[in-house]
Write a protein that binds this DNA or RNA. Structure first.
Length: 681
DNA sequence: GTTAGGG
DNA sequence: CCCTAAC
């Protein structure tokens, strides 16, 4: 094989916006509610998950540590909040045999096996292999050993970052600089002072208060059985990787802007592709789904990221919620929902999570394990940038806001004969390993999306030196990815992540329209297929996307619908959680088909109507048809001046009225008959 | 899963 | 178009 030129792409802390703007959307609200129903623990799990992976990537030897702050701790914090503990403090775990877990910092101090973290690591090296070879041994072996031994439980949960409460902490002062930070605003409604517990720089890595919490989390006070219990990672299955991976090496690099833990020992390691944790996966996906959500205006975001004053709006909001919370308890679900809505923060605040936690225990939980779960946020983190959360201590309202996730800088080395597809795949794997999956990667060249996965980098020009700077990557939901099965509560088994199906999305061009079925002809009904005129924001946003090769910027505003346009990927609609369907006004043709079908079948048989006249229009559900009929009737009754949208021929409207009157009459008759028969029987 | 109706 | 209730 001819020597191949290898290309290195550096990602420097790209961000995945996850802050929703559109709270208005009911679906989004639903998604938020869902998260709320999860007791807003997603963030914790997420932190643990993301950070856990990071640590896993770090080369640490299992032997050395006493400290770990990780998933368990996340869970602990979570628990604490559930239990009404607002302090978020760290306390040593005196619960006997706490399994001590190595942290990156430990290796820093011990100097063990930290061949990688080097600031001066040869990034952008064209002497490609150098980096990997230096460290691949240790790290890989470590990881695989861990995998084999099942010891990863805690390592996975270890966090190499910090939770930042209210302020940014000493990012510069610590020896470990973490790009991944989770900001959590802790607010105590009672004293109205944003109580902030945070890890500062040094703490983050020194972990003076070794806390390891092993075993069962403190029992939740809440009697609500639906309350989620933190999950633990038992083992990490090995992943298999495509053979093409042989050509591709990923190097995680660590420098000032990096999060892999410590800047100071070196950390250029071969990306060992840890099996992404399944834990929190779902939540990650949920959050990622918010990619469609607009990112809150940055200015605004910054304004209220750091001061309590800025939190006031939320506070008031929350206060109101609180006032009503009690009476809410026994409300019918519907009312409660309305309630929730009323307390949804202003979209501009960019809050994506708001929880109402029914902690019936209300502070009564004082048990030993709970104290164990108290821990300093120190050292926790993940690549979550600009995240806030405000906890309301007493009554356990948790409000989390995750503005973006930061993904660590990664370096990718790939031969220029590799295909774009494999490049995407490579980047994908790197990112997936970090985020836990649910994403796919788009490649942008000079702002344009490179869709053909089969072109080589050479062919697309990506390999040209002058283009290397204009190569960008975008994070997108992976429509073809089947959501991974959820781990059952308490059984953190992790499943292989090989289920990621091949990317099929950049399928260009419209697919052929379905041939109308015979019976539809009688309606004169052609019904457009699913992939019709739905706008494809993907395209537009691709143009806007950054050309900065170092910033992997999630492409905002990508319509799920556009993504779902790919046939056979309707499963991907699961990604739309939080996304309102695109509005697709009925065409006159469709209206006519509808009218005909209803004339024949009557109102009340919407499923049949759908099957008969709209069977090929996947985007028209029978509910849609019913709704359309409803509006048609309304439209027919109002004056033409009041009508909006594409005018419907009066003739059709007349038929609508006629049919509606007729079937209403029929229905009435049926209703009259029904009681009679009942009486007879 | 469908249907009906409010939003 | 969404959501919920009722079936």
């Amino acid at each position: 094989m001819v020597m191949q030129k290898r290309l290195d792409y550096g990602f420097n802390g790209y961000q995945v916006p996850v802050t929703p703007k559109a709270y208005r959307s009911a679906r989004k609200r639903r998604a938020v509610r869902k998260m709320v129903e999860d007791n807003a623990m997603g963030a914790f799990d997420l932190l643990a998950t993301v950070a856990g992976k990071l640590l896993l990537e770090g080369e640490s030897s299992p032997a050395s540590s006493h400290t770990s702050i990780g998933k368990d701790q996340c869970a602990g914090i979570k628990e604490n909040y559930l239990a009404g503990d607002k302090t978020l403090k760290a306390e040593p775990c005196d619960q006997g045999s706490c399994d001590r877990i190595p942290l990156v910092s430990d290796y820093m101090s011990t100097g063990q096996n930290l061949s990688s973290c080097s600031k001066a690591s040869p990034v952008h090296q064209n002497e490609s292999h150098s980096v990997m070879t230096t460290t691949s041994n240790g790290s890989e072996r470590f990881v695989s050993d861990m995998l084999a031994s099942g010891k990863c439980k805690n390592e996975l949960g270890s966090l190499t970052g910090k939770i930042e409460a209210g302020y940014s902490g000493n990012r510069g002062s610590g020896e470990c600089k973490l790009d991944n930070e989770v900001k959590i605003l802790v607010k105590d409604e009672t004293n109205k002072s944003g109580e902030v517990v945070t890890g500062n720089g040094p703490d983050m890595c020194s972990f003076q208060d070794p806390v390891v919490w092993e075993g069962e989390p403190p029992p939740l006070v809440s009697s609500d059985s639906s309350t989620k219990v933190p999950m633990y990672v038992d083992h990490i299955p090995q992943r298999s990787f495509p053979a093409s991976r042989d050509d591709v090496k990923l190097v995680g690099r660590d420098d000032d802007e990096n999060f892999f833990g410590c800047t100071h020992p070196s950390t250029a390691m071969k990306y060992s592709r840890p099996a992404p944790s399944r834990i929190g996966d779902r939540r990650i996906r949920k959050i990622l789904a918010s990619k469609y959500w607009k990112v809150a205006p940055k200015s605004k975001d910054e304004t209220h990221s750091n001061s309590y004053r800025d939190m006031k709006p939320n506070y008031h909001n929350r206060k109101n919620c609180y006032k009503r919370q009690r009476s809410q308890m026994n409300m019918p679900f519907k009312k409660r929902r309305l309630f929730d809505r009323s307390t949804v923060p202003n979209p501009d605040q960019g809050i994506i999570r708001e929880g109402f936690f029914d902690l019936r225990g209300k502070g009564t939980n004082v048990n030993a394990s709970a104290s164990c779960s108290k821990m300093q946020a120190t050292g926790m983190s993940s690549s979550v940038g600009g995240q806030h959360s405000s906890f309301q201590s007493r009554n356990s309202h948790v409000k989390l806001r995750i503005k973006s996730f930061r993904v660590p800088e990664l370096f990718i080395e790939i031969p220029d004969t590799a295909t774009v597809g494999s490049l995407k795949k490579t980047v994908m794997e790197a990112v997936t390993a970090v985020l836990g999956g649910g994403l796919c990667v788009g490649v942008l060249l000079q702002g344009k999306k490179v869709r053909d996965d089969n072109k080589t980098l050479l062919q697309t020009g990506i390999s040209q030196d002058d283009h290397l700077d204009s190569v960008g990557f975008s994070l997108e939901p992976n429509p073809s990815r089947t959501p991974l099965p959820l781990c059952s509560e308490g059984s953190p088994s992790m499943l292989p992540c090989d289920e990621v199906k091949p990317l099929t999305r950049y399928q260009p061009g419209p697919t052929s329209k379905p041939i109308p079925e015979p019976h539809m002809a009688s309606f004169g009904g052609f019904i457009e297929s699913d992939h019709d005129s739905a706008p494809s924001p993907t395209e537009m946003s691709a143009e806007k996307s950054t050309t900065d090769s170092k910033a992997l910027v999630a492409v905002p505003d990508v319509s799920v619908d556009a993504l779902a346009v790919v046939p056979g990927n309707r499963k991907s609609r699961r990604f739309d959680i939080g996304q309102r369907r695109i509005r697709r006004p009925f065409s006159v043709t469709e209206v006519e088909a509808l009218v005909q079908a209803v004339e024949k079948l009557g109102t009340g048989r919407w499923r049949d109507v759908k099957l008969r006249a709209f069977d090929n229009a996947k985007h028209r559900t029978y509910v849609d048809l019913k709704d359309k009929w409803k509006t048609l009737v309304h439209t027919a009754r109002i004056s033409p001046q009041q009508r909006r949208g594409e005018p419907v021929p009066q003739e059709l409207l007349d038929r609508v009225l006629t049919a509606h009157a007729y079937w209403s009459q029929q229905q009435a008759k049926q209703q009259l008959k029904q009681p009679e028969t009942c009486l007879l029987v």
